[in-house]
Write a protein that binds this DNA or RNA. Sequence first.
DNA 1: ACACACTGTTTACGGAATAAACAGTCTTAG
DNA 2: CTAAGACTGTTTATTCCGTAAACAGTGTGT
Lengths: 309, 309
Amino acid sequence: MTDAVEPELPRGIALAWGVAANPQRGPKREMSVERIVEAAVDIADAEGLGAVSMAAVAARLGFTPMSLYRYVNAKEDLILLMQEEATGAPSEATRTAGGWRERLEALYREQLQHYLTHPWVLDIPISGVPATPNSAAWMDAGLSALAETDLTYTERLAVMLLVTGTAHWAGTILAGYARVERERGVDGQAISRSEDAMFRTLITADAYPELRAAIEAGAFLDESDPFSFALARGLEGVSDYIAATGDGRRERPQSWVERDDADIADDKKFREARKAVRDAEKVLRDAHKLERQAAREARDRRARQRPEM
Amino acid sequence: MTDAVEPELPRGIALAWGVAANPQRGPKREMSVERIVEAAVDIADAEGLGAVSMAAVAARLGFTPMSLYRYVNAKEDLILLMQEEATGAPSEATRTAGGWRERLEALYREQLQHYLTHPWVLDIPISGVPATPNSAAWMDAGLSALAETDLTYTERLAVMLLVTGTAHWAGTILAGYARVERERGVDGQAISRSEDAMFRTLITADAYPELRAAIEAGAFLDESDPFSFALARGLEGVSDYIAATGDGRRERPQSWVERDDADIADDKKFREARKAVRDAEKVLRDAHKLERQAAREARDRRARQRPEM
DNA sequence: ACACACTGTTTACGGAATAAACAGTCTTAG
DNA sequence: CTAAGACTGTTTATTCCGTAAACAGTGTGT
């Protein structure tokens, strides 16, 4: 038998780490935990977590419901394993790309992508930090992105919580829309429009002046991505915080590292590199300006071709 | 009868706005939607959303399960009303205090407080922006806090999404811990410690070097509040953003507003402009990389001059 | 060869949401 | 004033859920 890791270790977690004892005696097993999880994930992908019943999973594999209990202690364990399967580990690309900010953004995007592919993961109740290999891998990837900063480990964890929180929140909202789309069988724009229409009848300028103004400004019809905005602001704030604590202008709780950025500010090569960054920022700003202008013109052209609405 | 607002208006929402038609004929009603919701909330507060069954709610009021269906269309509607009841409206104090940042922080704190008092609210699946009076009130309060800034309405909504998202995330995590505390009947520190112990056996320095380092630095035993940290960073980023766009020195980086506009994506000039942006982004990334490298080298040089510390 | 650990199956139980039919109650149109 | 019928809370029944318990086969180690 494989060694029992900890007596108090929840069996579901033991399974996730692959350290559950496999029996030697008795008839050959016809199924495996992996196949069960796979079938359950397929069902959840197609019809949501609510459609995942022991009976449905068993049926998909051609067995009776109770047979699953020879492999999985309870439905709760199965769901933990489904989560682990669907979450996956961060890809090599996002684990190595660019600086800490790019890497965290890549992490966010990949995590969000997983949520959109497997929206049912968001329906699973959270209890504590999940102690599974894949979630550890995500955490490790985030921490290693932040290793180049001089944040404390506590601060790095907090930043990671910010990133995963944003991904979770974005996934929750976006998956909510996607679900309504599927259930009602209409597209996203139609939902936005009908939501907007409902708001217009319910939200009076009297009771909710600012909200009403936002509605009338068409803010609820805007197609832009508010979550990237939120993440960008958050990471910008982190960047500020790093800069502020780095050069000693701000006190840091229980920090023992004292790197002085001012110390190297007069280093020639560093100054040059910094200037290059400033220049690149300006180039990017100008490019953005041109992009917006081109977009405006393109829209105008389109609008002139299709005059109505 | 009260006027029927919209034919397509979901009945649950109609109830929430108090515009559902109350019948005049027939026997006197012995219950009311309010009493039902109240009973359901009591049960959820005490034993979680899972304990809220139609039978349980009815029993608490001394009626049979089916009687509830004379007041509520389905359990889903009841849950919507419970959410509305538990969420409440923002208090006068938080709606009027200080500048935009203080007000958003107060909003966050009050919202989080509600989540901690009624953790089951976090178990309710989200579908779209909830169109209920109280959630409108929260949104309006946030927007009115941001009215003093010169952000666009779309941006204000995005900021509000950041604030409520942080509250939701913090509530989810904290409520998760609280639930485990209640279920296992131990206090928070004990959970932290046992979680930490479990991590120490499962997380090897080999597979998860950074995570292992964080554990060994005691980051998982830290009692500080990572969510306030996250919110502070986010609002700091917003503040930067306001400063950067407000004084006109820099163009408003609203590329996130206009990206992925399928309608104009095939316009030639726009495509070129977009490519220019991508290129500029890459140049900036490279510049950042060089800057970091230069900083590292400069630090090393200094360190070698002053050997220890 | 045989004990028995282990397999997948059958049967059974309690609880869930809610559809349908029912008898009693109150309003209102005639 | 009366009767239609809208509306009440109740009863009964259906379907689906997770899973406990008992069961007859199957393969291994002694």
